[in-house]
């Protein structure tokens, strides 16, 4: 089981306390009605699926309940870092 550092609780906790919430830094369009089909497709469905360094969101559901971002290597599953939501991409 993976241990994940929650940047809010500032503790390493087991993976089962957390829920993965998909790719990080996917910004919802500010003006939805002006989006083309292509832009909607990119926002809703197209995902980075890298073999290597990956930015993703996690939620500490059985802890503080807050969302944060993480950088993880998808081959080793090792976490490089975690940081609070709203902070710039690392």
């Amino acid at each position: 089981m993976i241990l994940i550092h929650c940047p809010y609780c500032d503790e390493k906790r087991p993976e089962i306390e957390f829920a993965n919430a998909g790719q990080a830094h996917v910004a919802r369009p500010l003006d939805p009605s002006s989006q083309s089909d292509e832009e909607w497709e990119a926002y809703l469905f197209i995902r980075a699926n890298p073999r290597g360094r990956h930015h993703e969101r996690w939620r500490h559901v059985h802890g503080c309940g807050r969302f944060f971002n993480a950088v993880r290597d998808t081959v080793t599953d090792k976490f490089e870092t975690t940081y609070k939501a709203g902070e710039p991409r690392r």
Binding site: I2, E15, N20, E56, V75, T76
Partner: peptide, 13 residues
């Protein structure tokens, strides 16, 4: 598993 991975192994839980 709940996260994207290419590790070809999963978690015990």
């Amino acid at each position: 598993d709940q996260y994207v991975s290419y590790s070809q192994r999963g978690a015990l839980h």
